[in-house]
Design a protein around this nucleic acid. Structure first.
Lengths: 213, 213
DNA sequence: AAACTGAACGAACGATCGTGCTAACATCTC
DNA sequence: GAGATGTTAGCACGATCGTTCGTTCAGTTT
């Protein structure tokens, strides 16, 4: 019964909402979620201010919807590609390299969307920070779970601290994004690529594992 | 001749400028440099909007002055304490631990000032980004130079890639700051502490060096 | 004492912000 | 057809933004 509606009024509304969010994630990844203004989105898209506003009900709801939209884009760009790869070291490595590519190719024009907006809201309690903290936790868990699979498969040492390892890998990815965007350089990505391989090798049962070549 | 002026009019102006900047770095470390508003600073400090404005000439100049003020605070909190420590591995480690303490003790209420505002401006060309890129480069160079001293002293292996090592260390520090502030946890600092020791040990000529105990 | 300098104030400017209202219009349900 | 429902536009609101201007007053210089 439920299923996707066929009501063309609702469909049109959803369509403009999507258009708004498409632009919103772009702006937010460069200038932050506070720089999102309803009037600006309206002008950019040739809509009326109240039209944009009506689609979300409040500025905060627009911001939250923007975060959700960014999560979908992130999942498509980083998570989906590694789904085919069998669990293990190779998948763990591909996940990291995929993230670097996601930053490097500017899936969001300002680099990683979440790096930008999390720094913006990490010290400001509220629904926005909660949503971003949840996103961060989810991402962290994905990395850790991927590493756990590799350990179960026997590719990582049994005494490896998965929390520390995930933390180290994510630290390298974010630092690469940050410095690459700031200085418009490619070197940070190369450094991160080398260092994350070293980190994985140090915990691998077989440092010569072909997945770490 | 030149020297610090004794003109009490100028001194008073400098004093209020300092008061404004003291509040400005607090706000910016939590909400970013765009959230700095002249009216708000004026109300917070019991001054008039035009009074605050006059002290800086433009909003952008106020933001730039805020960055400079933050650099001084950072230097006092992180750089000055390690000046006493003789060059070598011990100083390198102390620099990292000092940075973690600087973040942990909330020298700026929103965690590292530069992490917050660099994410805000890293994709927006202009004087602000230039100033922040310069700050980042300076800090990076300090870490690298400190490591270079340690290598000259024979504590680090001759083939160590100092750029990579500095990148790795800084990545750990910033990730710790980011996650600790976002989730209001202490664990990230502990993870960073453990991992940076491992990173240093891996490059040390003597992994059992007492400076890495 | 007169002339000058610099900090700070108060009032006003045009612009933009988020947010309400009401009306026009398309689309669905009956 | 009539009536309900949902999207979008137009207009106005109070608030706040950065900035300008003229004035006041403390302090320096001559």
């Amino acid at each position: 019964m439920a299923g996707p509606t066929t009501d063309r009024r609702l469909l049109r509304g959803e369509e403009t909402r999507r258009a708004v969010l498409r632009r919103a994630v772009e702006i937010a990844s460069v200038e932050g979620l506070e720089a999102l203004s309803i009037g600006r989105l309206a002008t950019d898209l040739g809509l009326s201010k109240s039209g944009v506003f009506a689609g979300f009900g409040s500025k905060e709801e627009l911001q939250l919807a923007t975060v959700r939209a960014a999560r979908r884009i992130f999942a498509d760009a980083v998570l989906a590609p590694v789904a085919d790869i069998p669990p293990g070291l190779a998948r763990a490595r591909a996940l990291c390299e995929g993230w670097l590519a996601y930053s490097r190719t500017r899936v969001f024009p300002g680099g990683c969307f979440f790096f930008e907006v999390t720094a913006e809201f990490d010290a400001r309690p509220g629904p926005l920070r909660d949503a971003l903290a949840d996103s961060a936790r989810t991402w962290h868990r994905i990395v850790e779970d991927t590493l756990a699979e590799a350990r179960t498969a026997g590719a990582l040492r049994p005494d490896t601290d998965l929390g520390d390892l995930a933390f180290g890998l994510i630290a390298l990815l974010e630092a690469a994004n940050s410095q690459a965007v700031l200085h418009e350089e490619d070197t940070p990505y190369q450094r991160a690529g080398r260092l994350l391989l070293r980190l994985l090798r140090a915990e691998a049962t077989d440092p010569a594992d072909p997945a770490l070549a």
